[in-house]
Amino acid sequence: MRRSFAFSVLLAAATLAAVPVQAQSLLEYVGQCVPFARAASGIQIYGDAWTWWAQADGRYQRGQKPRIGAVLAFAKSARLPLGHVAVVSRIVEKRVLMVTHANWSRLNGARGHAEQDVTLFDVSPRGDWSQVKVWYRDTNGLGSSIYPAHGFIYGLPDPAAGKAVRPARPAAELSSRQPDYVGSLIDAYAR
């Protein structure tokens, strides 16, 4: 009896610890990029960010052109051993867009926070978004690192998919009402 009571208490504690605390707003989120991208984009893929591109094959449409609400899947690299996922919030011009994502910059000394309308610059030789630079809020500048990316997952069911996938619905808070387009262009092109 004593052992089953102790087990029940431990089970209840473990269950409560596994339930994530829900933020009032998408932008109040603090945590990893994957659950944030899933909530912000509506794309129902699970697992490490570097696995999203392959998991989307046969489920969601994929491509090399940005669309609002699409998820950019960063590849696994030395700097990103688990990859990264970010949701397109604005398309500024052919090689500059804004993303809303989590767990990138250090805000108030800590990673994990959500960031809205962050500049992303395509630096790939072919203009196919396979190599990007990302703005860092903690340094107020476009990073010097170049990150490899697979491409965009659009959230629309792949017509060749054998099973039904519901279209994804991006969150309403994906972009601000007045994003800084000019600042984004200056950040990208003023080296």
Rank of each mutant, 00 (worst) to 15 (best):
L174F: 09
I68T: 13
G127L: 12
Y60I: 09
R79A: 14
V87G: 01
F7D: 11
I68P: 01
G42C: 04
R95F: 03
G151V: 08
G155S: 10
A164L: 11
S25V: 03
R137D: 14
S145G: 12
L72D: 03
R177P: 01
W135P: 09
D48S: 09
Y46E: 15
D180P: 05
D187P: 00
G31M: 07
W129C: 07
A40L: 03
G109Q: 07
T51N: 05
G127K: 14
L26T: 13
T100W: 06
V182H: 01
D180N: 11
D180E: 04
T15G: 11
Y29G: 10
D138F: 14
A161L: 10
V182I: 12
V34P: 00
M1C: 00
A172N: 12
H150S: 14
A172P: 02
A18C: 13
K133I: 04
Q61R: 10
F152D: 00
D128I: 08
W53I: 01
I146F: 04
A49V: 05
A110T: 13
A168N: 12
N108V: 06
Q131I: 02
A114I: 08
S144K: 15
P20G: 06
L16Q: 04
G63V: 14
N108D: 15
Y29T: 07
V92K: 07
I186N: 11
F5P: 00
L185S: 06
W129D: 08
N103A: 10
L10F: 11
P167Q: 10
S124C: 07
G183K: 13
G47Y: 08
I91K: 03
V92Y: 06
L27D: 03
S105R: 08
A190W: 12
Y136M: 14
T51H: 03
Y136P: 03
A161K: 13
I91G: 07
Q61K: 12
I45W: 02
V21M: 05
G42V: 02
P66L: 01
G127C: 09
R177S: 06
R111P: 02
L185H: 02
K94C: 00
V182S: 04
Y189G: 08
G143Q: 10
L72E: 04
R111Q: 07
E28F: 08
G162A: 11
R191V: 07
A164D: 10
A78F: 10
W129H: 12
L107S: 09
V134H: 13
A18E: 02
D187Y: 05
Y181S: 04
A86N: 04
R38T: 10
A110V: 15
P81A: 05
S77L: 09
F74G: 02
S4H: 13
L107E: 12
